[in-house]
């Protein structure tokens, strides 16, 4: 699944979405079209961060329930509606781990890890023999702080642009770019050790 498919929208699509939001603000039942529109994106965002499919399903329903509860407060600020939903999602995942003492979890495929290796260029590639790479990178990623892991997950495992990351994290594009580069630099440092 690719969450990016519906993230970037044309002006007409944004206008259409605004109408849906206004309707949902007037009647919670009218949130259904927005639910249809964003269900897969949000489910996929959650399943990458929790181990059990059933937990992901529960969290996804909680995200939409909170979104309906807070929709009246939502104000259009030029960002896609999904960035608002992702922020609620991020908080819900934090709450999930706060309430359940599980180890935090990131689901990643080997292809996505290879994408990270390919895009980190130079050092990681030259530092390690091919067979060592994945194991080393996994253990380095596990040592990163939550926010650093979040950046790498978004950038490399979810293939998001810095602009999109900035909107979800409510930060600036430059900030997202700089922090991601720092996180990669940290991975490289950890590998060198």
């Amino acid at each position: 699944m690719n969450e990016k498919q519906t993230y970037h929208k044309t002006t007409a699509e944004i206008e259409q979405e605004k109408e849906l939001i206004i309707k949902a603000q007037q009647n919670p039942q009218d949130f259904a079209p927005l639910y249809d529109l964003y269900y897969l994106q949000l489910f996929n965002y959650v399943i990458k961060r929790v181990k059990e499919e059933n937990d992901a399903a529960e969290i996804t329903s909680d995200i939409f329930a909170k979104a309906i509860f807070n929709i009246k407060k939502y104000q259009f600020k030029g960002f896609p509606f999904s960035s608002w939903l992702y922020r609620i999602a991020s908080n819900e995942i934090i709450d999930f781990y706060r309430q359940n003492k599980f180890d935090k979890y990131v689901r990643v495929s080997e292809t996505q890890l290879n994408y990270l290796i390919d895009n980190s260029e130079d050092e990681i590639n030259t530092l390690l023999a091919k067979e060592e790479k994945i194991g080393q990178i996994l253990s380095s990623l596990e040592k990163l702080a939550d926010d650093e892991q979040q950046l790498i997950t978004m950038r490399f495992f979810e293939d998001r642009s810095f602009k999109e990351m900035a909107e979800i994290l409510d930060s600036t594009e430059t900030n997202a770019r700089v922090k991601t580069h720092r996180a990669i630099a940290k991975v490289k440092e950890l590998i060198k050790k």
């Binding site: 181990k51 935090k104 979890y105 990643v108 495929s109 292809t111 596990e142």
Partner: peptide, 9 residues
């Protein structure tokens, strides 16, 4: 700590 879990499925 977050565990990174490889899941090709």
């Amino acid at each position: 700590m977050k565990k990174i879990h490889i899941d090709n499925n």
